[in-house]
Amino acid sequence: MELLSLIGRYFIAGLAEIGRLVIFTKEVVSHLVRPPFYFSMVGRQILTIGYFSLPVVGLTAIFTGAALAQQIFVGTGRFNAEAAVAGITVISIVRELGPVLAGLMVAGRVSSAIAAEIGTMQVSEQIDALVTLSTHPHKYLVVPRLIAAVLTLPLLVIVANIIGVFGGFLVGTQKLGFNASNYLQVTVDFLEASDIHSSLVKAAVFGFIIALLGCYHGFKSRGGAEGVGAATTNAVVSAFILILLANLIITVNVFGS
C-alpha cells in the first residue's frame, strides 16, 4: 500500500504541475496579443538569446556534422552505398540533428539563464515591485523573451544546418575522398523543401518551449538561493524533455511522410 500511495502522490503532483504550466501558458499567450508591447525589450532579448548563442550552436553543429558523415560512411559501406553519404548527412542534419541540437544547446544556455534571472527577481521581490509600478510581470518579462526565442531559434537552426552540412563536407572531401563539387551536388539534389519546413517549424516550437520553461520555473522559485538553483535545474531538465517530446510528435505526426 505504501508503494501505491507513493505512485499516486507522484502522479497527482505531476498532473498538478502540468495544470499549472498550462494555466501559465494560457495567461502568457493572452498577454502576447494585448497592449502595451515592450518592443525595446524584445530587441535586447534577441541579442542575448540569439546572437550570443551563435558560437555554441556553430561548434556543436560542425563537430556533429563531421562525425555524422564519418558514421554514415561506415554504415553505408556495409552495403556498398557510400555514394549516399552526402544525401543522408544533409537529411539527418536538416530534419533532425540541426534543430534538436541547437534547441538543446540553447535550452542549456538560455532556459537556465532566464530561470535564474527571473527567479532572483522573484525571491528579491522585484516581481512584486513591478506590480506596484503598474507593470504586469508576464507582459514585461515573459512576452519579450517568448517572442525573441520564437523568432531567433529558426535563424539559429538555419545557421546550425549550414555549418553541420559543412562539417560533413569537410570530412567527406578531406578524409573520405569525395569530390567536392560532386558532394555538394548530391547534397542539393537530396534536400527537399519539406525538410527545411520541418526544420524551421521544430525550431520555432523549441524556441517557445525554451523561453516558456525558463520563465515558468523562474516565476515559481521560492526561498532564496536554493530555490533559484532548483528552478534553474528544473528549467533545463524540463526544457530538454519537452523539446525531445515535441520533436518526436512533430516528426511522426506532421512530417512523417
Binding site: 527577481m121 521581490e125 522585484q126 512584486d128 506596484t132
Partner: peptide, 12 residues
Amino acid sequence: VGMLFQGGALFD
C-alpha cells in the same frame, strides 16, 4: 500607490 520593499527590490 507607492511601496518600499524590505530589501529595496531595485531592478538590478
